[in-house]
Design a protein around this nucleic acid. Structure first.
Lengths: 354, 354
DNA sequence: GTGAAAGCGCTAACAC
DNA sequence: GTGTTAGCGCTTTCAC
């Protein structure tokens, strides 16, 4: 009935008892050594480590999780897209999670699934995680009462308010409207009478945040907000929007909610004979790697994905490990526009260089 | 001493025994129902499900893993970059892993860590996984003997030969040189005397594969391969390469190993007064979302990330679940160039349209 | 400083 | 169809 234990032939994967036997100590001592507990003499520690090395011992994580009640892993709910923003954020999350000694489990929300985020969180809870990161959730039709999730681990929501109820809910990267505001103000400062906005899909909080920031900037300068054009983050949608905006001579400056749309927009403008930035200025958002190399090089607002991930996860891990302590304070990284060649003063009002 | 069991006050997380008690059956029956085993009457199944629902029961995954010896999760080793290719592949892997009922664990290789892939695989093995996917590994200095990993689960390597030894090693997406070959041939067919290559970093197998495909196409047409320029996948490196190539009048066609570099390349060419595609034709690789919207719209070779992930994982899961059966045969998706506006016949030799 | 005993919550074999 | 009995390999008391 013994399963996995040596039985004559080939060597099976070793257990901590095997290490203990070889080192001439108790199994508990092996456990002590591997958990870096105190009260183990240097000599014993050495012997245990040597024995483990010799046997090729590896702790069984399932057994640890079962006995301790902690899985030492964090789950992240993502959108399943290779879009620059979400993908960068995920990579940032992975790095920080690994650095803090946790393992990372990933689940994408299923496109078109009404359960959406709730379903993904549920699956993470099934798998067993000590904490959950929800990255850039988008709106879903509210799941019915049956969808009312009992999340009993701390949750960190990146770039949006929380879609779930949990004992501890933290948020980070949710003040981007400052960035959108700064982007819009850059255009206003250049002398443009107003700034049009090519928005992202409004189901995304990130898109709504940017819309709000744009509106705020306009309001602060006493300008009226022109009608919003909405895209879906893709260059294709930016292109479509560009054909529309190109027809309107009042358009001299556009703030696009991401770089891909800005690139599509510029292409449509150019094709329609409206030169960028001579006739129309365009500001993007994200600073994708190609932004500096498209024609014209794009003025854009970079995002600090790593900083956001780090700030958020530091607080999540704190909440996991000190459930009763007060949560750590939030901190948002500063914003800084990168000015390249897609923005200039409006045509009717000659710029400094002629 | 009982931990987690009800003790008067608040309701703790319920166990399968609790469900069994409430449903009036044995604990084993609860297990049967949740594992969809046969030989449970519809009536009993209903009662168990109701009881579980009422209690908010959720199977403990650690206990399942410990008792069964299977973790029901697959680990993936990635590069930690938001580059379009690797990120798309990761998303494809996530989708397929989820569809097959496994959970996904993600570990990035640490930049600059000599242990590299081995370290990442090791960490996955510590966490406990039933199979491992290594996505687009790059060359590392060979880890010493101490790095000789004993991997005892099936491994799938995407886009490269395997860097580790394991009982079952599968590969997929490793025949891309056909795609590179087709891209080069498109240029040759247009009438270009030869085709220059802007290669990716040669530590990447993907980059070497494309280089090989390019060489093969040239050889098949009896052309000599001009010197290779190497970039690092970024638009910035493409730009640098472009300044170099622009100076050489013999350059009339360039095959870039990815779209980002192609975009940077085109920018440098344009700035140097060499029009694309009139003077120089450029073909990219990947078909990034903005490819159709840059100036000029890019002719490029799309990659079938989802298809590669699906084909590979189907075989990995098969190997996990039928360790003794013969591995499933590999199948590579077909390649199809997308011709847009960055390629044309060479200037010296007028094209069909004049 | 170290060890013995008792589970953690489930699945695996086997009986009935 | 259903229940009984043993563990899975650790961590956690609590002794010594």
């Amino acid at each position: 009935m013994t399963r996995g234990t040596a039985r004559g032939g080939a060597s099976p994967t070793p257990r901590s008892v095997d290490v203990a036997r070889l080192a001439g100590v108790s199994q508990k001592t092996v456990s002590r050594v591997f958990n870096d507990e105190q009260y183990v003499s240097a000599d014993v520690r050495r012997r245990v480590l040597d024995a483990a090395e010799e046997l090729g011992y590896r702790r069984n994580n399932a057994a640890r999780a079962l006995a301790s009640g902690r899985t030492r892993s964090i789950g992240v709910v993502t959108l399943g897209t290779a879009l620059y923003g979400p993908a960068s954020l995920l990579m940032g999350v992975e790095r920080v999670v690994r650095e803090t000694g946790y393992a990372l489990r990933v689940v994408n929300t299923v496109e078109g699934d009404p359960a959406g985020v709730a379903g993904a969180v549920n699956s993470l809870l099934d798998q067993g995680v000590d904490g959950i990161v929800i990255s850039e959730p988008i709106d879903e039709q509210a799941a019915g009462d049956e969808g009312a999730l009992r999340v009993d681990v701390p949750v960190l929501v990146l770039g949006a308010p929380s879609p779930v109820a949990a004992p501890t809910v933290l948020t980070a990267g949710h003040g981007v409207d400052l960035a959108a505001r700064a982007a819009t103000e850059h255009l206003l400062d250049l002398g443009h009478a107003t700034v049009h906005h090519l928005a992202g899909p409004q189901a995304w909080y990130a898109a709504r945040d940017r819309l709000d920031g744009w509106r705020a900037a306009l309001a602060a300068h006493g300008r009226k907000a022109p009608p919003v054009v909405e895209g879906d983050w893709s260059a294709a949608s930016g292109y479509a929007a560009g054909r529309e905006l190109a027809a309107d001579d009042d358009v001299t400056a556009v703030f696009a909610a991401n770089d891909d749309m800005a690139i599509g927009l510029i292409r449509a403008l150019t094709e329609a004979g409206r030169r960028v930035p001579h006739d129309v200025s365009v500001v993007g958002f994200d600073d994708v790697p190609v932004a500096a190399y498209v024609t014209p090089p794009l003025t854009t607002m970079p995002q600090r994905f790593d900083a956001v991930a780090r700030a958020g996860l530091t607080r999540l891990v704190h909440a996991i490990e000190h459930p009763d302590a007060a949560p750590l304070p939030a901190s948002e990284p500063p914003v800084d526009l990168i000015v390249r060649a897609s923005t200039a003063p409006p045509p009717s009002r000659p710029g400094p260089a002629g």
